[in-house]
Nucleic acid binder design. Sequence first.
DNA 1: CCACTATATCGATGGATGTCAATATTCAAG
DNA 2: CTTGAATATTGACATCCATCGATATAGTGG
Lengths: 130, 130
Amino acid sequence: MTLTDVTITSRDEATSREAVTIVSPDAACCAPLTRETISPADAEVFARRLKALADPVRLRLVSIVAASDGQEACVCDLIEPVGLSQPTVSHHLKVLTEAGFLARSKRGTWAYYRLVPGALDATAAPLVSI
Amino acid sequence: MTLTDVTITSRDEATSREAVTIVSPDAACCAPLTRETISPADAEVFARRLKALADPVRLRLVSIVAASDGQEACVCDLIEPVGLSQPTVSHHLKVLTEAGFLARSKRGTWAYYRLVPGALDATAAPLVSI
DNA sequence: CCACTATATCGATGGATGTCAATATTCAAG
DNA sequence: CTTGAATATTGACATCCATCGATATAGTGG
């Protein structure tokens, strides 16, 4: 991403939120940044992924799927372990799928959710390099 | 970790009326777990930590602090970059501090927030081993 | 003590989210 | 085509959360 030096006005609740970037070194009066910071857009994307995981039920669902044979589990086998209603489990699985952590494949009447390889690692990696 | 009661008893008796379901000889009818799954309590704790990070503003705050000299930044230097009100920034910093990602130290009138070493890595680690 | 600055807390508010019951949809079997 | 089962979607509701303005608290200097 490109650096855009922006004179940040006061809190004029305008919509220019994407333009906030790191401070150029010459204007280092207050906070000398030694590295580049995450861009607002990247933070938004990353937060969305983390939010999909930041739920105890969804963490358990991912864990059960990951621990299942072939890293794949049927919905009917996920309802009982988490102890919630079928629509709720379906909702959580949808959130995880839309976030890229699970993938759905239907076989007959059953829907199987499998772990997307590398999805969890791809989310963990930016954390250590933040 | 403790192994929660993984009753792998299938719900086979549900269809015991007259339909003799043909079960494949490999007996992999439902969900054979090959590994241990996360406990509900651990999922709750982990989800709480992830939730503290799953916000674009907080991710940017952590990033700015991490990129600052000495991995430490004053509140007054964090308000402008994120473009939000001072109470809101203070709120986010509190959330991050209570979650163990930041630590606060007051010097004079100013409050400095610094990165807690290893906190991010400790959160990223369980993700890859889920 | 008083004024000023930096930060934290409080109260309110609009929007996001987790949950369920009811219903729709999809698919296999008769 | 009709029935039944597995799953997804919808609508409603309660709760949580990000944000702000107003205010309180703490620390510095006169």
